[in-house]
Design a protein around this nucleic acid. Structure first.
Lengths: 232, 232
DNA sequence: ATTTAATAGTGTAGTAAATACACACTATAT
DNA sequence: ATATAGTGTGTATTTACTACACTATTAAAT
């Protein structure tokens, strides 16, 4: 770390909580650090912000390095600046969270960076011990997402383009950590008129195939302005 | 600026949008800068964060310097890091907003800092041109406050300890920028059961004196957990 | 003493939205 | 044939939201 960390070249980093949704479970992408401090520990993807890039660009760069994807939904979360959060001195980090369609990943993400030995999706419910204050950052992210999906249609960022209502419901249940009534969920969700019913159905399932829906982007844009209020 | 700004001593600042409420109007405390860049311009109170203080502490320090008060409600808003936001190079700022009971100020705030020539409360509706990206920061703050008062009782931070329901309503109206129905407002607000009716009335008014209320802190704490949903 | 001006304070009814709840149908695996 | 897991619909009840108009109180002016 000493060598490739120019002294005070940058005094702040960015860290990104990348959420994915798979098999009814929320997952977070963690890296195994290949650098001191915390070499060998699991941590959030993140690095120093370069002098000539905005913070947003730095996050996009990190997202691309770890997923090979561009245009991922991301949003700034909070800036953490505790004096003791980094053993090498006070280094603040601007934390972001990102929501990712896991089916967009052709393969397992290959770390292109030299500071990560591997990158692995971990279920949110079963996280390893993390470097720095990264556990705290993840906790704050999930709180933010939990609140935000009740007034903004960000949930769709986590689903494939075509999805079933059950998948959508499972996603809300995973984020809120509680069961929802199926009938009311469908009624409410369809009433927003932001979903487009497709003439297609699930394939390869051993039960009645569910209808597929996709987001109606024009109506979505309209509703996004006024904000949904999907509560409870 | 050159002299008292040690080179790279700190590469980030904090700026604070301090809101007050007086005579039915929302106000923001602005300083007139006494330093380059933007010497003579109006700007948000803010300064470099010292090496040995947390960001929160830096904000508290700035709040104290400009108001003489401690324990003011404050919350982090967003971190701004555009490459061109500061003429001297990329300096990010962690912006906060604070809510202040104006009646707690014994006198006009006297700037204790050397970087401010004066500090003046400006009505939000009539702001001067501002230094840096501070106008943008204020706009984002008011959006945040507007959203937040609909699910969290932060409005009380802006009112004196004892207040009338009309004052409370005017505050909501000022923040949301629209009129509310008096009866519905009262009904809803009293139904939360977070206000304590006092055996006291307004004094010195030339019309029927209104009853005073204060926040019931025990009930407030309970409700705060579940979050209000005071909307529209 | 009376009037005026200004604001405080109060209730009801209609409408819309959220919730709770029960059953029937379809496909698949064994 | 049966068990299982999922889809798909209707209705009644409760709760929340909206619209709306008059009387009461106080101080100041006459």
């Amino acid at each position: 770390m000493q060598s490739n960390l120019p002294h005070l070249q940058s005094t702040f980093t960015t860290d990104c909580v990348i959420f994915g949704f798979h098999e009814g479970e929320l997952k977070v992408l963690l890296i195994e650090r290949n650098e001191y401090p915390f070499k060998g520990w699991w941590a959030l993807p993140g690095f120093f912000v370069e002098h000539n890039e905005t913070i947003d660009d730095a996050v996009k760069r990190i997202l691309y390095e770890h997923t090979g994807l561009r245009g991922i939904f991301m949003e700034q979360l909070y800036t953490f600046g505790n004096l003791k959060r980094h053993p090498q001195g006070r280094i603040i980090t601007v934390a972001y969270y990102a929501l990712l369609r896991l089916d967009d990943l052709k393969s397992q993400p290959a770390p292109v960076t030299d500071y990560a030995r591997q990158a692995v999706w971990h279920p949110l419910k079963n996280l390893p011990e993390l470097a720095f204050d990264h556990r705290h950052i993840i906790d704050k992210s999930i709180q933010k997402v939990r609140r935000k999906i009740s007034y903004s249609p960000i949930a769709f960022e986590l689903l494939p383009e075509k999805f079933t209502l059950t998948q959508l419901q499972q996603l809300y249940e995973a984020i809120w950590g509680r069961k929802l009534d199926k009938r009311n969920f469908r009624k409410k969700m369809l009433n927003y008129n932001i979903l487009k019913e497709l003439p297609e159905f699930q394939r390869g399932v051993s039960y009645r195939a569910a209808r597929l829906y996709k987001l109606d982007k024009r109506k979505y844009a309209k509703v996004f302005q006024n904000e949904l209020t999907f509560s409870r």
